[in-house]
Nucleic acid binder design. Structure first.
Lengths: 232, 232
DNA sequence: GAACACATAATTGTATACAATACAAGTATC
DNA sequence: GATACTTGTATTGTATACAATTATGTGTTC
């Protein structure tokens, strides 16, 4: 795949589309924590000027997916262990509530979408694409927050899920992610049944489960070249 | 006060300092919801190019203090009534928890700072500067979140407090803000006593109180000229 | 060979120029 | 007189040029 393919892919890349593409790449662990994001390099990759790259990078820094240090540039954030715990504590505070509300508000359409997420996630795992599975699993949580019709809290959860992806890249312990599938399935079932307090409790235990699957050890963190990582 | 005074005030204005100045002006209701923020105008006021103004505006838009619409520019956000309720619901979910933790972690230094906030707020009210009093009251809440040593959640609360200021500008019903002073005093006392569950409960009822002081009616919303509003 | 100073390159920060878009006012046409 | 069209102005979007800062490499000295 050539450079032209990248820059012409979507006719004119906006800062939003670039931020989204980078975010996706980070979510899917194609770009790992610590990777330097050089403006010129990205500008050439996406076929725009540094101006729009800078806007995209600033967006991502506001949700703490990347870190910008003055005169030093941007790199993919690597949350400390304290931050990692904080993120999951915040999720344990917010998400059980959204699961409760979602159970009361979900339409059959919502349920279908949630089930589709689970299927897609399963397919990604089957296709040996754990990065994509992780991304889809995040979408699942975001979707529940949106079903709960609390866009403010949903926004917070979105950033927490995004940072969770970084945290998982750094501190994940378990090998198999299959544990999640059951949890998500059970959650959807209780939401479909309109059983709010059960959904709340399932979400809480699911998050505690994820939280406890983190470990102190730092991951190796080999870093791909930017161009390869973004050439999807 | 001349234009030069403004642009030379802090030698070289950075996008951060400008974002902070604008944020303060919005907090203190010197700039009201709906006000258009024109880049050229701000660039001249602060003596920098549009480039740095744009960065500042984007920061503020990420915490939803202002709204940027493509090719339409920025204006101070005016949250809908639904958003207003959401913000306070989110605060009712997060802040009682931080109050609880703060009660367990606060040092005597922290307590002193909280008491100083209350005094400053009282002084601002006495000086017939309700905007500043509101800002200081927000700082009080942010401070508690920081004392709780949960920087992730503290960040969320900061944005919620900021948006609360917009909401109060639009939907405030009561005349006197004195009700708050007692609530804040009692909160500090229970935090100083290390009584977590009492602090938690006081915070919850304080927020419910604030929430219930909102009303449907829209406020008049006369808008100052930008230059006057920012010439402090 | 290690530590330092200095020159050079790479990268980010800011200002400015120009292009694209939106808004308003006026003009023509029916 | 109402509507559609055109033109002009204000404002934002993007690219580029240059300044400021940081990183890198090379020699020199001990």
């Amino acid at each position: 795949m050539t450079k032209t393919d990248l820059s012409d892919r979507s006719k004119a890349a906006t800062s939003d589309s670039i931020a989204h593409a980078l975010s996706l790449a980070i979510h899917e662990h194609r770009i790992l924590p610590g990777t330097k994001l050089v403006e010129d390099e990205l500008a050439e990759i996406y076929g725009v000027s540094r101006t729009v790259i800078r806007a995209a990078l600033h967006s991502l820094s506001h949700i703490q997916l990347i870190e910008i240090r003055r005169n030093k540039g941007a790199s993919v954030a690597s949350p400390s262990l304290k931050e990692a715990h904080e993120v999951f504590e915040a999720r344990e505070l917010l998400e059980p509530r959204t699961a409760f509300s979602a159970a009361q508000l979900a339409t059959s359409e919502d349920i279908a979408r949630l089930e589709r997420h689970i299927e897609d996630e399963h397919a990604a795992l089957a296709a040996a694409d754990p990065g994509r599975a992780l991304y889809l699993s995040g979408l699942f949580h975001n979707d529940i927050a949106h079903i709960a019709n609390q866009s403010t809290i949903a926004g917070f959860i979105e950033t927490l899920v995004a940072r969770s992806s970084l945290i998982i890249a750094l501190y994940w312990r378990r090998e198999s992610a299959l544990c999640e599938k059951h949890a998500h399935h059970a959650l959807v079932k209780s939401i479909a049944d309109g059983n709010g307090s059960q959904a709340e409790e399932l979400m809480r235990s699911h998050l505690v489960d994820l939280h406890s699957a983190l470990d102190l050890k730092e991951r190796s963190g080999r870093v791909l070249s930017l161009k390869d990582a973004l050439a999807q």
